[in-house]
Simulated assay, not measured.
Amino acid sequence: MDRGTFVQHEGRPAVRFERTYAHPVERIWAAVATPEGLAHWFPSRVELEPHTGGKITFSDDPNTEPTAGTVLAFEPPLRLAFSWGGDELRFDLEPVDAHHCRLILINVLEARDTAARNAAGWSVCLAELGKHLSGALTDGPHGEAAEPWKPLYDAYVASGMPYGAAIPGAPSGA
């Protein structure tokens, strides 16, 4: 399974993930581009105006304050992109065949040193997305049954991914 890589995206630092799911593109779109689908695996509660230029809001994440961004691309069922703070998130869907879809998630980073922290977070979230798509009940990435974040973070740091950004909820210097 792709655990994510550190890349440059249009000249900016980013972490990139690729997953292929045994579901048609419409099913994956519903999971990644609707508030109802995102509720199962995304770290925040999301409300969005489903069009390019629309407003998107994020709330109910125990690690961040509520915030808002802009929908940068809304092209059902193939692309959703939006700003989130100084970052951008891109979800690109590629139908493999009638029953399989590839998801490429790119988190374009405001700061290079957030790469390992964010990659670990997206690994947890994508594991929850996989559970949701398989029909399993999930409590989301903050739930007790979610994959632990810290070992993933440590593995990204050990692999050489940029790190050093503050970790919400951790003591200074952790």
Rank of each mutant, 00 (worst) to 15 (best):
G173V: 12
I56A: 07
R16S: 10
F42A: 15
G160A: 06
E65H: 07
A68H: 05
P151F: 13
N107H: 15
A170T: 04
P62Q: 10
D61Q: 04
F17S: 06
P171K: 13
Y156P: 00
P151G: 12
V71W: 12
E49L: 06
G140W: 11
A111E: 15
T114A: 12
W149L: 01
P50T: 04
A81T: 00
H9L: 13
T5C: 13
F42H: 13
P43E: 10
V96W: 09
H9M: 11
E110C: 00
C101Q: 06
R112H: 08
G140I: 07
A68L: 01
D60E: 14
G121R: 03
E47M: 03
L89H: 14
K55F: 01
N63P: 01
L133G: 12
G85Q: 10
H9C: 11
A14V: 02
L126G: 10
W84C: 07
L152A: 14
P171M: 03
F58K: 06
L48I: 04
H51V: 07
G140S: 14
L133R: 04
Q8N: 15
E88Y: 06
N118Y: 06
G54C: 09
A115Q: 05
K150Y: 11
G37C: 08
R45N: 05
E94F: 06
A127M: 01
D2Y: 11
G37S: 08
R12S: 08
M1Y: 13
E110N: 00
